[in-house]
Simulated scan of single mutants.
Amino acid sequence: MDLFDDLPEPTQTSVAPPVQDEEDRRFKRRRDDEEEEEEEEKDEIKKVCREGLPRLRGYAAARRGERDEMQDAHVLMPDMSSCLSSLPGHVSRVSYFAVFDGHGGARASRFAAENLHLNLAKKFPSGDAENLDKLLKKCLLDTFRQTDEDFLKKASSQKPAWKDGSTATCVLVVDDTVYAANLGDSRAVLCRTEAAAADGQRKSVTLALSKEHNPTIYEERMRIQRAGGTVRDGRVLGVLEVSRSIGDGQYKRCGVISTPDVRRCQLTANDRFILLACDGLFKVFSADEAVKFVLSVLQEASVEQKDELTEEELRFEAACQQLASEAVRRGCADNVTVILVSVCH
Protein backbone atom coordinates (compact mmCIF):
# COMPACT_ATOMS: atom_id res chain seq x y z
CA MET A 1 0.00 0.00 0.00
CA ASP A 2 1.29 3.47 -0.95
CA LEU A 3 1.66 5.59 2.18
CA PHE A 4 0.78 8.67 0.16
CA ASP A 5 -2.43 7.38 -1.43
CA ASP A 6 -4.57 10.05 0.23
CA LEU A 7 -2.39 13.00 -0.84
CA PRO A 8 -3.49 14.91 -3.97
CA GLU A 9 -1.45 14.40 -7.13
CA PRO A 10 0.87 17.36 -7.91
CA THR A 11 -0.52 19.49 -10.76
CA GLN A 12 2.88 20.66 -11.96
CA THR A 13 6.48 19.71 -11.45
CA SER A 14 8.04 23.15 -11.66
CA VAL A 15 8.56 25.24 -8.54
CA ALA A 16 5.85 27.91 -8.21
CA PRO A 17 7.04 31.51 -8.19
CA PRO A 18 7.21 33.22 -4.80
CA VAL A 19 4.33 35.55 -5.65
CA GLN A 20 2.06 32.51 -6.08
CA ASP A 21 3.12 31.27 -2.61
CA GLU A 22 2.14 34.64 -1.19
CA GLU A 23 -1.25 34.51 -2.93
CA ASP A 24 -1.82 30.97 -1.62
CA ARG A 25 -0.94 32.08 1.88
CA ARG A 26 -3.33 35.05 1.66
CA PHE A 27 -6.09 32.79 0.34
CA LYS A 28 -5.45 30.24 3.13
CA ARG A 29 -5.52 33.00 5.79
CA ARG A 30 -8.79 34.35 4.37
CA ARG A 31 -10.29 30.85 4.31
CA ASP A 32 -9.13 30.16 7.90
CA ASP A 33 -10.63 33.50 9.02
CA GLU A 34 -13.93 32.66 7.33
CA GLU A 35 -14.01 29.20 8.96
CA GLU A 36 -13.23 30.74 12.34
CA GLU A 37 -16.03 33.28 11.90
CA GLU A 38 -18.41 30.47 10.91
CA GLU A 39 -17.48 28.48 14.05
CA GLU A 40 -17.95 31.58 16.23
CA GLU A 41 -21.35 32.16 14.63
CA LYS A 42 -22.37 28.56 15.38
CA ASP A 43 -21.19 28.92 18.99
CA GLU A 44 -23.11 32.20 19.26
CA ILE A 45 -26.30 30.57 17.96
CA LYS A 46 -25.88 27.71 20.45
CA LYS A 47 -25.18 30.23 23.23
CA VAL A 48 -28.38 32.14 22.40
CA CYS A 49 -30.32 28.85 22.44
CA ARG A 50 -28.79 27.95 25.80
CA GLU A 51 -29.55 31.37 27.27
CA GLY A 52 -33.22 31.03 26.29
CA LEU A 53 -33.59 27.76 28.20
CA PRO A 54 -34.86 27.49 31.78
CA ARG A 55 -32.06 27.09 34.33
CA LEU A 56 -32.22 23.78 36.18
CA ARG A 57 -30.63 23.06 39.53
CA GLY A 58 -31.02 19.86 41.56
CA TYR A 59 -31.25 19.45 45.34
CA ALA A 60 -31.36 16.13 47.20
CA ALA A 61 -32.22 14.97 50.72
CA ALA A 62 -32.06 11.40 52.05
CA ARG A 63 -33.22 9.97 55.41
CA ARG A 64 -32.71 6.39 56.58
CA GLY A 65 -35.94 6.37 58.64
CA GLU A 66 -36.15 3.34 60.90
CA ARG A 67 -34.45 0.98 58.44
CA ASP A 68 -31.11 -0.63 59.33
CA GLU A 69 -29.66 0.31 55.93
CA MET A 70 -30.11 3.10 53.39
CA GLN A 71 -31.18 1.24 50.24
CA ASP A 72 -32.05 4.31 48.14
CA ALA A 73 -29.68 5.96 45.66
CA HIS A 74 -29.96 9.13 43.59
CA VAL A 75 -28.20 11.04 40.80
CA LEU A 76 -28.14 14.79 40.04
CA MET A 77 -26.69 15.85 36.67
CA PRO A 78 -27.88 19.35 35.69
CA ASP A 79 -25.49 19.13 32.72
CA MET A 80 -24.98 15.64 31.32
CA SER A 81 -23.05 16.75 28.23
CA SER A 82 -19.69 15.63 29.70
CA CYS A 83 -20.96 12.01 29.46
CA LEU A 84 -22.10 12.35 25.85
CA SER A 85 -19.71 12.00 22.91
CA SER A 86 -21.79 14.55 20.97
CA LEU A 87 -25.19 16.24 21.10
CA PRO A 88 -27.75 16.22 18.29
CA GLY A 89 -27.14 19.33 16.14
CA HIS A 90 -29.92 21.55 17.48
CA VAL A 91 -29.69 20.46 21.15
CA SER A 92 -27.90 22.79 23.61
CA ARG A 93 -28.28 20.99 26.95
CA VAL A 94 -29.15 17.60 28.43
CA SER A 95 -29.91 17.19 32.15
CA TYR A 96 -30.56 13.99 34.11
CA PHE A 97 -32.03 13.40 37.58
CA ALA A 98 -32.93 10.02 39.06
CA VAL A 99 -34.02 8.29 42.24
CA PHE A 100 -33.74 4.53 42.89
CA ASP A 101 -35.48 2.75 45.79
CA GLY A 102 -33.80 -0.57 46.53
CA HIS A 103 -35.38 -3.62 48.18
CA GLY A 104 -33.74 -6.84 49.34
CA GLY A 105 -30.47 -4.89 49.63
CA ALA A 106 -28.82 -1.77 48.23
CA ARG A 107 -26.89 -3.38 45.36
CA ALA A 108 -29.50 -2.98 42.59
CA SER A 109 -30.21 0.67 43.41
CA ARG A 110 -26.49 1.51 43.58
CA PHE A 111 -25.79 -0.36 40.34
CA ALA A 112 -28.61 1.53 38.57
CA ALA A 113 -27.38 4.88 39.96
CA GLU A 114 -23.85 4.16 38.71
CA ASN A 115 -24.72 2.68 35.32
CA LEU A 116 -28.09 3.76 33.94
CA HIS A 117 -26.92 7.22 32.81
CA LEU A 118 -23.76 5.67 31.27
CA ASN A 119 -25.91 3.28 29.20
CA LEU A 120 -28.11 6.23 28.28
CA ALA A 121 -25.07 8.19 27.11
CA LYS A 122 -23.92 5.28 24.90
CA LYS A 123 -27.34 4.99 23.23
CA PHE A 124 -28.09 8.72 23.03
CA PRO A 125 -28.97 9.97 19.51
CA SER A 126 -26.28 12.10 17.85
CA GLY A 127 -25.75 14.12 14.69
CA ASP A 128 -28.67 15.88 13.01
CA ALA A 129 -31.13 13.32 14.36
CA GLU A 130 -34.49 13.22 12.57
CA ASN A 131 -37.52 12.56 14.76
CA LEU A 132 -35.56 13.10 18.00
CA ASP A 133 -38.64 12.53 20.17
CA LYS A 134 -39.13 8.96 18.90
CA LEU A 135 -35.39 8.22 19.12
CA LEU A 136 -35.17 9.43 22.74
CA LYS A 137 -38.10 7.27 23.83
CA LYS A 138 -36.51 4.22 22.20
CA CYS A 139 -33.18 5.17 23.79
CA LEU A 140 -34.79 5.22 27.27
CA LEU A 141 -36.52 1.85 26.75
CA ASP A 142 -33.25 0.26 25.52
CA THR A 143 -31.30 1.84 28.41
CA PHE A 144 -33.57 0.39 31.11
CA ARG A 145 -33.51 -3.04 29.47
CA GLN A 146 -29.70 -2.97 29.16
CA THR A 147 -29.20 -1.83 32.79
CA ASP A 148 -31.52 -4.59 34.04
CA GLU A 149 -29.77 -7.26 31.93
CA ASP A 150 -26.34 -6.10 33.11
CA PHE A 151 -27.36 -6.19 36.77
CA LEU A 152 -29.04 -9.61 36.48
CA LYS A 153 -25.92 -11.00 34.81
CA LYS A 154 -23.76 -9.69 37.66
CA ALA A 155 -26.26 -10.81 40.33
CA SER A 156 -26.52 -14.37 39.00
CA SER A 157 -22.72 -14.75 38.89
CA GLN A 158 -22.41 -14.19 42.67
CA LYS A 159 -22.33 -16.99 45.24
CA PRO A 160 -25.01 -16.91 46.57
CA ALA A 161 -26.82 -15.02 43.81
CA TRP A 162 -27.96 -11.49 44.68
CA LYS A 163 -31.71 -11.09 45.00
CA ASP A 164 -31.81 -7.28 45.19
CA GLY A 165 -34.20 -5.18 43.14
CA SER A 166 -34.87 -1.48 42.67
CA THR A 167 -37.43 0.97 41.40
CA ALA A 168 -36.18 3.65 38.99
CA THR A 169 -37.61 7.08 38.27
CA CYS A 170 -35.54 9.19 35.88
CA VAL A 171 -36.12 12.62 34.42
CA LEU A 172 -34.19 13.50 31.26
CA VAL A 173 -34.47 17.15 30.20
CA VAL A 174 -33.41 17.83 26.60
CA ASP A 175 -33.35 21.64 26.20
CA ASP A 176 -36.87 22.44 27.48
CA THR A 177 -38.49 19.03 26.93
CA VAL A 178 -38.87 16.62 29.86
CA TYR A 179 -38.80 12.85 29.32
CA ALA A 180 -39.77 10.94 32.48
CA ALA A 181 -39.17 7.18 32.58
CA ASN A 182 -40.08 5.04 35.58
CA LEU A 183 -40.42 1.54 36.99
CA GLY A 184 -42.16 0.71 40.27
CA ASP A 185 -43.65 3.07 42.84
CA SER A 186 -41.16 5.95 43.04
CA ARG A 187 -42.70 9.04 41.46
CA ALA A 188 -42.03 12.30 39.62
CA VAL A 189 -44.36 15.30 39.55
CA LEU A 190 -44.19 18.81 38.07
CA CYS A 191 -45.42 21.94 39.85
CA ARG A 192 -46.99 24.39 37.39
CA THR A 193 -48.73 27.66 38.27
CA GLU A 194 -51.88 28.65 36.42
CA ALA A 195 -53.04 32.13 35.44
CA ALA A 196 -54.27 34.38 38.26
CA ALA A 197 -57.77 33.62 39.51
CA ALA A 198 -60.46 36.27 40.12
CA ASP A 199 -58.93 37.06 43.53
CA GLY A 200 -55.53 37.71 41.90
CA GLN A 201 -53.92 34.57 43.41
CA ARG A 202 -51.99 32.22 41.13
CA LYS A 203 -52.97 28.59 41.66
CA SER A 204 -50.46 25.74 41.58
CA VAL A 205 -51.24 22.50 39.74
CA THR A 206 -49.52 19.14 40.27
CA LEU A 207 -48.85 17.20 37.06
CA ALA A 208 -47.91 13.51 37.26
CA LEU A 209 -44.82 12.67 35.18
CA SER A 210 -44.73 8.99 36.15
CA LYS A 211 -47.07 6.02 36.45
CA GLU A 212 -47.11 3.70 39.45
CA HIS A 213 -46.50 -0.01 38.86
CA ASN A 214 -47.86 -2.32 41.51
CA PRO A 215 -49.56 -5.73 41.20
CA THR A 216 -52.99 -4.42 42.30
CA ILE A 217 -53.34 -2.45 39.02
CA TYR A 218 -55.44 -4.49 36.59
CA GLU A 219 -53.05 -4.50 33.60
CA GLU A 220 -50.09 -5.35 35.82
CA ARG A 221 -51.93 -8.16 37.60
CA MET A 222 -53.10 -9.65 34.28
CA ARG A 223 -49.53 -9.72 32.92
CA ILE A 224 -48.26 -11.42 36.09
CA GLN A 225 -51.02 -14.03 36.01
CA ARG A 226 -50.49 -14.71 32.30
CA ALA A 227 -46.81 -15.36 33.07
CA GLY A 228 -47.83 -17.95 35.71
CA GLY A 229 -47.35 -15.71 38.76
CA THR A 230 -49.90 -14.90 41.45
CA VAL A 231 -50.86 -11.76 43.37
CA ARG A 232 -51.56 -12.18 47.07
CA ASP A 233 -52.09 -9.38 49.58
CA GLY A 234 -51.30 -6.87 46.82
CA ARG A 235 -47.85 -8.39 46.20
CA VAL A 236 -46.27 -10.63 43.56
CA LEU A 237 -46.27 -14.16 45.08
CA GLY A 238 -47.32 -12.40 48.30
CA VAL A 239 -43.81 -10.87 48.63
CA LEU A 240 -42.84 -8.20 46.05
CA GLU A 241 -44.66 -4.85 46.26
CA VAL A 242 -43.85 -3.65 42.71
CA SER A 243 -44.64 -5.21 39.35
CA ARG A 244 -41.77 -3.61 37.39
CA SER A 245 -38.19 -3.18 38.56
CA ILE A 246 -34.48 -3.45 37.87
CA GLY A 247 -33.12 -6.71 39.32
CA ASP A 248 -35.45 -9.11 41.18
CA GLY A 249 -34.19 -11.98 39.02
CA GLN A 250 -36.30 -14.55 40.91
CA TYR A 251 -39.51 -12.72 39.88
CA LYS A 252 -38.75 -12.12 36.19
CA ARG A 253 -40.36 -15.47 35.25
CA CYS A 254 -43.52 -14.28 37.07
CA GLY A 255 -44.11 -11.29 34.79
CA VAL A 256 -42.06 -8.64 36.62
CA ILE A 257 -40.52 -6.58 33.80
CA SER A 258 -38.06 -3.71 33.36
CA THR A 259 -39.95 -1.82 30.63
CA PRO A 260 -40.53 1.73 31.88
CA ASP A 261 -43.41 4.04 31.17
CA VAL A 262 -42.07 7.05 29.29
CA ARG A 263 -43.88 10.39 29.38
CA ARG A 264 -43.02 13.62 27.60
CA CYS A 265 -43.76 17.14 28.81
CA GLN A 266 -42.79 20.60 27.52
CA LEU A 267 -41.53 23.02 30.17
CA THR A 268 -43.29 26.40 30.22
CA ALA A 269 -42.65 29.78 31.84
CA ASN A 270 -45.22 28.80 34.52
CA ASP A 271 -43.25 25.80 35.83
CA ARG A 272 -41.64 26.10 39.29
CA PHE A 273 -40.03 22.73 40.03
CA ILE A 274 -39.94 18.98 39.44
CA LEU A 275 -40.15 16.67 42.46
CA LEU A 276 -38.83 13.08 42.36
CA ALA A 277 -39.14 10.84 45.41
CA CYS A 278 -39.34 7.23 46.50
CA ASP A 279 -42.54 5.80 47.98
CA GLY A 280 -41.26 6.58 51.50
CA LEU A 281 -42.38 10.18 50.91
CA PHE A 282 -45.70 9.27 49.28
CA LYS A 283 -46.69 6.95 52.14
CA VAL A 284 -47.23 10.05 54.28
CA PHE A 285 -47.76 12.80 51.66
CA SER A 286 -50.06 12.93 48.65
CA ALA A 287 -48.39 14.47 45.58
CA ASP A 288 -50.48 17.65 46.03
CA GLU A 289 -49.56 17.92 49.72
CA ALA A 290 -45.85 17.51 48.94
CA VAL A 291 -46.00 20.27 46.29
CA LYS A 292 -47.88 22.61 48.65
CA PHE A 293 -45.36 21.91 51.43
CA VAL A 294 -42.48 22.87 49.11
CA LEU A 295 -44.29 26.03 47.97
CA SER A 296 -44.91 27.06 51.57
CA VAL A 297 -41.18 26.79 52.39
CA LEU A 298 -40.26 28.69 49.19
CA GLN A 299 -42.53 31.55 50.31
CA GLU A 300 -41.08 31.83 53.83
CA ALA A 301 -39.69 35.27 54.58
CA SER A 302 -36.29 34.46 56.06
CA VAL A 303 -33.57 32.03 55.09
CA GLU A 304 -30.15 31.56 56.65
CA GLN A 305 -27.60 33.18 54.34
CA LYS A 306 -24.66 31.20 52.90
CA ASP A 307 -22.05 32.91 50.75
CA GLU A 308 -22.00 30.41 47.92
CA LEU A 309 -25.80 30.17 47.43
CA THR A 310 -28.34 32.73 46.24
CA GLU A 311 -31.52 33.34 48.24
CA GLU A 312 -33.54 31.35 45.69
CA GLU A 313 -31.11 28.40 45.95
CA LEU A 314 -31.22 28.53 49.76
CA ARG A 315 -35.02 28.34 49.70
CA PHE A 316 -35.02 25.28 47.42
CA GLU A 317 -32.32 23.60 49.52
CA ALA A 318 -34.38 24.24 52.68
CA ALA A 319 -37.61 23.01 51.05
CA CYS A 320 -35.94 19.75 49.95
CA GLN A 321 -34.41 19.04 53.38
CA GLN A 322 -37.55 19.98 55.31
CA LEU A 323 -39.79 17.82 53.10
CA ALA A 324 -37.65 14.71 53.76
CA SER A 325 -37.49 15.44 57.49
CA GLU A 326 -41.26 16.03 57.67
CA ALA A 327 -41.90 12.62 56.06
CA VAL A 328 -39.92 10.95 58.86
CA ARG A 329 -41.65 13.12 61.49
CA ARG A 330 -45.03 12.01 60.14
CA GLY A 331 -44.09 8.42 60.90
CA CYS A 332 -42.63 7.04 57.68
CA ALA A 333 -40.36 4.21 58.82
CA ASP A 334 -39.04 3.59 55.31
CA ASN A 335 -36.01 5.22 53.65
CA VAL A 336 -36.95 8.63 52.24
CA THR A 337 -35.16 10.22 49.28
CA VAL A 338 -36.33 13.50 47.75
CA ILE A 339 -34.95 15.31 44.69
CA LEU A 340 -36.13 18.83 43.94
CA VAL A 341 -35.25 20.36 40.57
CA SER A 342 -35.80 24.12 40.39
CA VAL A 343 -36.94 25.50 37.04
CA CYS A 344 -35.92 29.16 36.73
CA HIS A 345 -36.73 31.31 33.68
Rank of each mutant, 00 (worst) to 15 (best):
residue 52 G to I: 02
residue 7 L to T: 04
residue 185 D to W: 00
residue 150 D to S: 11
residue 111 F to L: 07
residue 308 E to W: 14
residue 246 I to F: 06
residue 308 E to M: 11
residue 340 L to P: 05
residue 301 A to H: 13
residue 68 D to L: 12
residue 229 G to I: 06
residue 343 V to F: 00
residue 290 A to Y: 03
residue 1 M to H: 14
residue 338 V to E: 04
residue 184 G to V: 03
residue 230 T to S: 10
residue 54 P to G: 02
residue 179 Y to W: 07
residue 197 A to T: 14
residue 116 L to T: 06
residue 251 Y to R: 09
residue 251 Y to H: 12
residue 286 S to W: 08
residue 122 K to V: 11
residue 267 L to Y: 03
residue 16 A to I: 15
residue 47 K to H: 08
residue 1 M to C: 14
residue 300 E to W: 01
residue 206 T to G: 04
residue 2 D to P: 15
residue 291 V to M: 05
residue 133 D to A: 09
residue 203 K to D: 04
residue 161 A to L: 04
residue 163 K to N: 10
residue 262 V to R: 05
residue 248 D to L: 01
residue 340 L to K: 08
residue 40 E to W: 09
residue 143 T to L: 04
residue 11 T to R: 14
residue 174 V to P: 00
residue 300 E to Q: 15
residue 322 Q to H: 12
residue 130 E to N: 09
residue 133 D to F: 03
residue 31 R to F: 12
residue 130 E to G: 08
residue 314 L to F: 06
residue 267 L to I: 00
residue 296 S to M: 05
residue 331 G to A: 05
residue 35 E to V: 12
residue 267 L to N: 04
residue 185 D to R: 07
residue 319 A to T: 12
residue 192 R to L: 02
residue 297 V to D: 02
residue 190 L to I: 10
residue 83 C to F: 15
residue 95 S to P: 03
residue 179 Y to L: 02
residue 231 V to T: 03
residue 232 R to F: 10
residue 162 W to D: 15
residue 192 R to V: 09
residue 200 G to A: 03
residue 160 P to Q: 05
residue 169 T to D: 06
residue 195 A to I: 08
residue 252 K to H: 02
residue 68 D to R: 14
residue 53 L to D: 04
residue 338 V to G: 03
residue 263 R to G: 08
residue 6 D to T: 13
residue 295 L to F: 07
residue 284 V to K: 05
residue 303 V to Q: 07
residue 84 L to M: 02
residue 46 K to M: 14
residue 245 S to T: 10
residue 61 A to Q: 08
residue 32 D to T: 10
residue 242 V to D: 05
residue 83 C to S: 13
residue 145 R to E: 12
residue 93 R to V: 10
residue 79 D to H: 09
residue 207 L to Q: 13
residue 65 G to P: 05
residue 154 K to D: 12
residue 196 A to S: 13
residue 218 Y to Q: 12
residue 244 R to Q: 02
